[in-house]
Design a protein around this nucleic acid. Structure first.
Lengths: 201, 201
DNA sequence: GAGAGATATATGACAGAACAAGTATATGTG
DNA sequence: CACATATACTTGTTCTGTCATATATCTCTC
């Protein structure tokens, strides 16, 4: 699965320890398209080592705990390249906000507007973060090859494009509901006043 | 988890069996924002029943297997309403395509263009499906309340907006790489170029 | 010198999700 | 008549991801 290949991908650029992968890669560089927690990273590294896709050397440090530094093998590189060009499969859609929205038909307009506004705010925060990261790119933070730098920039642009589209759509939703409010009479709130239909068990 | 609330949401509209939920709800109506497999649906229904959020009645059918029809309880409705207005949390980003793109710095341009084109095609299929579903909405397929119909339309619009943004961005990526190809000398290929043969991972 | 925080790795327990397969009945198709 | 398909529910297994916690050392600050 993808976490294996994510780790192989980072190791293809440079040798890294589990700690490096967690902090520098997943929490920092890749956080707009993949995340992983520490336990997952360490266990996956073990698995990749068993499969001979990475090698391991222990680096003693003078005044810090030992580091276990992993390096990709030729098998690992082959596995990575095969995966990159393998058949694309879109992950199953799973969007908690659309779920909420779908079921908010019974809520009053003010409540729905508030739910939308809070969702918008979360996406705006994400957008600010993405833009801040793009703005640091030109200024020497990308010391890798030009191509590596280019595709990284592309992933940020992709995340930005989708986030912007989401925010614009949320604004449309707010407008639609506001318009609906203006022309419709104040509504009854169905949620509190449902007729109890169920006997207990 | 969200699946619990998805099921409560559907049951808030009408009583349903596990089979109904799987086929009519998750595979059909909700496939643009949530999916679930059969095992998951049945096990979740059991859990909701244990928690007294739904009730169960068995309906004998003359020439078909019995149906276990579930109905939401007042507790279930309360749980659902609380969840809808609860603090939004954006799910951690997890996009296999961005992962591939990030690590494709070593591939030759033609290969990357092909990977992008195949990804675009998958999104285009999704977009076609979404548009087809929107176009059936006006014509009486939405027999529910006006509000229920409105928010459902909004969820489709949201999925469309994001898919369109993704396709536009993929086109930008293709253009950028084509431009890069035109001006740069033929590149060394660190990876062997691999024939893009489907293989699911 | 006490405590917070960063560096570094590891394990146990568990829930959620995916994948596979099994049971049963009825209908339609070639 | 065999086979596929639709209806309807169930079980087993594995994988993935999350959370909490543990160990150990060093640096910085109050």
């Amino acid at each position: 699965m993808s976490l294996d290949h994510a780790i192989l991908g980072f190791l293809n650029v440079e040798d890294l320890s589990g700690y490096d992968l967690k902090t520098r890669c997943f929490d920092d560089r890749a956080r707009h398209f993949w995340t992983a927690d520490q336990a997952q990273v360490y266990r996956t590294l073990e698995r990749l080592h068993d499969k001979r896709l990475v090698t391991l050397r222990t680096v003693r440090q003078s005044r810090k705990p030992d580091r276990k530094v992993y390096a990709i093998t030729d098998n690992g590189r082959r596995e990575l390249a095969d995966w990159i060009v393998s058949k694309p499969h879109l992950p199953p859609a799973r969007d908690p906000f659309l779920l909420r929205l779908e079921f908010s038909g019974d809520l009053n307009d003010e409540t729905v507007l508030d739910v939308i506004a809070r969702e918008r705010s979360a996406h705006q925060d994400r957008l600010d973060d993405l833009r801040a990261r793009v703005s640091t790119l030109g200024s020497g933070s990308c010391e890798a090859t030009e191509r590596t730098c280019l595709v990284h920039r592309m992933t940020l642009d992709g995340a930005i494009a989708r986030t912007r589209a989401t925010i614009d759509w949320l604004d449309d939703c707010s407008e639609t509901i506001s318009a609906h409010m203006a022309q419709a009479p104040p509504q009854r709130t169905l949620f509190e006043s449902r007729t109890p239909k169920g006997d207990t068990r």
